[in-house]
């Protein structure tokens, strides 16, 4: 009989990440006619973000499209996806993908299918023109940034002030100067209207998007060989395709904002290297704190 997979994505349907996932779904459903079909139940209105990890683990949903960063409490090692610059297909070649997949199977009862939308990362956006120190690092001492668990420690270690606040407050906070900087991908940035206040973007970007498509392991094992083959094929294809697509979108979003007068400030030399090293270090340190078992092995595979 035809395999049916119930899926949920992490952003509202109209947002780019969900649209990207729906392309993957369309392709599977097209190629899988009579063999395997993905039935998309919806986004955060169906399963809120913080619960996605456990919903898949328990089998409440069969498949999800979600960033690894959303359920680090289940698989702390998921942080390698944002920390490492390695491309998804390179990780498949050097054995990194199989290693991390095994960890997800053990800890999250999850089978990884693809690391999608990987061709973009986070940027720092500031209200005032940021100054560089002598070694080329940004002067973080004047920055007040909205905190997220993902990068709080990182920016704090560089001397910035972090403020926790609900997403709905960010607009007013930027408007009123409670915060004067923001860290976020370029895609979707304009939708929040934040670009009106943050007129500077800082190069280089940091972290990489860590969006995964994964399945409940028991469901995966229950699929026919043919279904699994189709899913794997489409996953590998789409991983690369979505990488290029999002890299292009990232570039276009940034260009659009620059066309409207946004300025770019670039860190240079030793300071730039320090910035990137600190970003990676923050992630690896946290991983080690939570569970050191696989850290050594992963460091080699996810440089």
């Amino acid at each position: 009989a035809e395999d049916v997979i119930e899926a949920v994505h992490f952003t509202p349907t109209q947002v780019g990440f969900a649209q990207s996932f729906l392309k993957f779904v369309d392709r599977v459903n097209e190629r899988g006619k009579g063999v395997v079909q993905i039935n998309v139940r919806g986004g955060p209105e169906v399963v809120p973000n913080p619960q996605l990890g456990t919903a898949q683990q328990s089998g409440l949903i069969d498949m999800m499209n979600a960033p690894a960063g959303l359920y680090l409490e289940i698989v702390p090692e998921g942080e390698v996806f944002s920390a490492s610059a390695i491309k998804p297909w390179e990780a498949r070649e050097n054995g990194g993908w199989d290693a991390i997949d095994k960890i997800y199977q053990e800890k999250g009862n999850a089978k990884l299918l693809a690391h999608v939308d990987a061709g973009a990362g986070f940027w720092l956006w500031t209200v005032d023109e940021p100054k560089l120190t002598e070694d080329g690092l940004l002067d973080f001492s004047k920055l007040v940034i909205r905190a997220s668990p993902l990068y709080k420690q990182f920016f704090e270690s560089l001397g910035a002030q972090m403020i926790v606040q609900p997403a709905g407050d960010v607009y007013t906070s930027l408007e009123r100067g409670v915060i004067n900087a923001n860290a976020y991908p370029s895609i979707g940035y304009k939708a929040f209207g934040w670009d009106k206040f943050t007129r500077y973007r800082v190069e280089p970007g940091f972290f990489h998007l860590d969006v995964l498509i994964s399945m409940n392991l028991d469901k995966w094992n229950s699929l026919s060989d043919e279904s699994r083959k189709i899913l794997n094929e489409v996953a590998i294809e789409y991983e690369r395709e979505s990488y290029d697509a999002i890299a292009k979108e990232d570039e276009e979003s940034r260009a659009a904002m620059e066309a409207e007068g946004m300025k770019v400030v670039e860190m240079t030399g030793a300071g730039r290297d320090k910035f990137l090293a600190e970003a990676a270090k923050a992630s690896w340190d946290r991983m080690k704190d939570r569970d050191p078992t696989h850290v050594e092995e992963l460091r080699k595979l996810f440089p």
């Binding site: 407050d169 960010v170 607009y171 939708a191 929040f192």
Partner: peptide
């Protein structure tokens, strides 16, 4: 200010 207005704007891709 309106937190719901901001949310609506960003969800519906309307200029907040």
């Amino acid at each position: 200010p309106s937190a719901l207005g901001v949310l609506l704007g960003s969800l519906a891709q309307i200029d907040v």
